[in-house]
């Protein structure tokens, strides 16, 4: 059974991707296609290769084998880095902080893709203006005195996630990759993140979500992919599996049986 979104070409496709670190296989023969409007939930135990997979998509790691296609066109992996991934519409919210704690918000929004003139001088006024717009729309100022010059270290976890999400939205991501975006957030903040993912999907953007919380994934994902020790062991649509069954399946894998 195929849903209608999958009739359109995939935004991103991995074909037979593998990756090893110093002889240890982290990923083996990964095939994955993500279509517009889809939310793919990536589940698996610690060490299953979820983060490695995400770092390949986002241009941090280079795969040893296989190919990566964006809009059906193979990407030159030797030139594929964070900046290239971003310029092709792939935004990643990593599990670890990608914010410079001591730096003001405006620098954090634009680091790695600063607005510059031909001499490489920053267009500070414009960066600050856009930052304020992002803050208003995605972070929720809640009466607090947050400005473009506020250093990140004074922000709460939810506000930081709002900055990261706002950044992804502003730069018009077509595929947003989120690695454990709900860890250490309050209930209200978790809800904001999950609502954001639902909005992405409604706008025809795609999303890949990693979470240890199967409940969070089940709420928003349209498809689940189970990774175990670097291999894809299962892929199923949401309507074909209940939350309890998905949970049971993961526990079974964890116990060693497939």
């Amino acid at each position: 059974m195929r849903s209608s979104v999958q009739d359109r070409p995939p935004i991103l496709e991995l074909r037979g991707v593998g990756k090893s670190f110093r002889g240890t296989v982290a990923l083996r023969e990964i095939h994955l296609a993500v279509h517009p409007g889809e939310v793919v939930g990536l589940v698996g135990d610690n060490g299953a290769g979820k983060s490695t997979l995400i770092k390949i998509l986002s241009g941090v790691h280079r795969p040893d084998s296989g190919s990566l296609l964006i809009d059906g066109v193979a990407v030159d992996l030797s030139r594929y880095g964070v900046a290239q991934a971003r310029s092709m519409g792939i935004e990643t919210l990593f599990q670890e902080s990608t914010l410079g704690e001591q730096q003001p918000l405006w620098r954090n929004i634009f680091v790695g893709r600063a607005l510059v003139n031909r001499w490489g001088m920053l267009r500070v006024a414009e960066e600050k203006r856009v930052t304020m717009e992002i803050l208003r729309r995605y972070v929720g100022l809640q009466g607090r005195a947050i400005t473009a010059d506020t250093p990140v270290q004074t922000l709460s976890g939810g506000e930081r996630q709002g900055v990261a999400i706002g950044r992804a939205m502003y730069f018009d991501a077509r595929l947003v990759v989120l690695d454990e975006p709900t860890t250490a957030l309050s209930l209200g903040e978790v809800d904001r993140v999950l609502t954001f993912i639902e909005q992405l999907s409604a706008q025809g953007r795609a999303c890949i979500l990693i979470s240890h919380n199967v409940g969070h994934i089940y709420r928003v994902a349209s498809r689940f992919i189970i990774l175990d020790r670097g291999e894809m062991v299962a892929s199923c649509d949401r309507q074909d599996i209940s939350l309890a069954d998905l949970h049971g399946r993961l526990l079974q894998i964890h116990a060693g049986g497939r």
């Binding site: 880095g81 670890e96 410079g100 620098r107 790695g112």
Partner: peptide
């Protein structure tokens, strides 16, 4: 500034 603030974060931002 980002290299000194957080080396890993700087790299993840493409620095």
């Amino acid at each position: 500034l980002f290299t000194g603030d957080n080396l890993r974060a700087a790299r993840l931002n493409g620095v």
